[in-house]
Design a protein around this nucleic acid. Structure first.
Lengths: 184, 184
DNA sequence: AGTCGTAGTGACAGTCACTGACACTATCAG
DNA sequence: CTGATAGTGTCAGTGACTGTCACTACGACT
């Protein structure tokens, strides 16, 4: 394995986060990000598909953890429980990534383009969960319904978590699930 | 009121639909769309915010119908029922717009950029429903949970509907709601 | 009939995200 | 030490999108 490129990628991430926060997403050019990271614009686009993607790196790890949680669950677990188990398994990742996630969130709310990408990311995560459920023999429509219900539950928990940092996210997930049950 | 512009807008919609279908979304330029519609590229961008938006025109009507359905419901209706009532009220619109919707859907699946926009559109519709629920005094977190559950239900119904055109969409919505209940 | 305000349009120049192609270089395996 | 490979720089190009200014169609109003 030659020159790793991982450092450049990390510098690009930080540079983008800084610049987007300082002068705003739209007022920042990809050339400026590259310059601050000490590379050329062309190199930026070798690491990230577009100007937004740099804010959504590290999503792969999250997806893998969640898929693994579904794959390794007991035989008899219900579809929705599988999805909630996946989100709960990811709680440590959310806790660890929290400081960065907050900075990111503050940037994302300022730009419709970034919110759009955020939606896409969570939709693609949902698709991955659906795939994992199907691997366990759950029919596609059922899997989709369960995954989307789980996503709604997690969003509710996650929003509550942003409000009160002290709470335990896993407990909030369970609580949101109860809320949904009472709604239906 | 001077020159309406509605005709140009309609021609742009059709031109885009044709070209995207013929040669693909990415292989089509906005200049080509404008040319086929008999206007300049600049005029295209006066009618539509970007290259994708032309495929998502007429969303406003849908939103209004659904919001009205929520606003005009009985006092005692539960949050989820309100949301389902909104989707059900929109069924005639979906039936009427079906032929175009199918062409559009075929185009959208060919391009990640268009799928991204489609996600954004349904997310913004969900936000509008949340707002309508809040108007009725339902607290935001509850409204959000109900709106997202309703969206999941409708997606499930809508997918079933694409498969078997004969079925009644309203019935499929009720059926999908039962499915979700049994999942929880 | 003439005038006047308004919404829509064309023309033009410019910025910037993103891509393809080619040459060069740092690193590691043997 | 050599060769294979992943990463990078350079350069030229396309196309989405924007600001600005002048012009025109149309309806309102006298």
């Amino acid at each position: 394995m030659p020159r790793s490129g991982a450092q450049a990628r990390a510098r690009l991430r930080e540079a983008a986060l800084d610049l987007y926060a300082e002068r705003g997403y739209e007022a920042t050019t990809t050339a400026e990000i590259a310059a601050r990271a000490g590379v050329t614009e062309r190199t930026y686009f070798r690491h990230f598909a577009d100007k937004r993607e740099v804010l959504f790196d590290g999503e792969a790890e999250l997806r893998e953890v969640m898929i693994a949680a579904i794959a390794s669950a007991q035989e008899t677990t219900s579809p929705l429980s599988l999805v909630l188990r996946a989100y709960t398994a990811a709680v440590p990742l959310f806790v660890a990534g929290r400081p960065t996630a907050e900075r990111r969130a503050q940037i994302i709310v300022t730009s419709p383009a970034l919110q759009e990408r955020a939606h896409t990311k969570s939709a693609s995560l949902t698709e991955a969960l659906i795939g994992a459920l199907e691997q366990r023999g759950i029919p596609e429509p059922t899997a989709r319904l369960a995954a989307r219900a789980g996503a709604a539950i997690f969003e509710r928990a996650s929003r509550a978590w942003s409000g009160t940092p002290a709470q335990d996210l896993a407990a909030l997930i369970a609580q949101a699930a109860d809320e949904l049950r009472s709604l239906i």
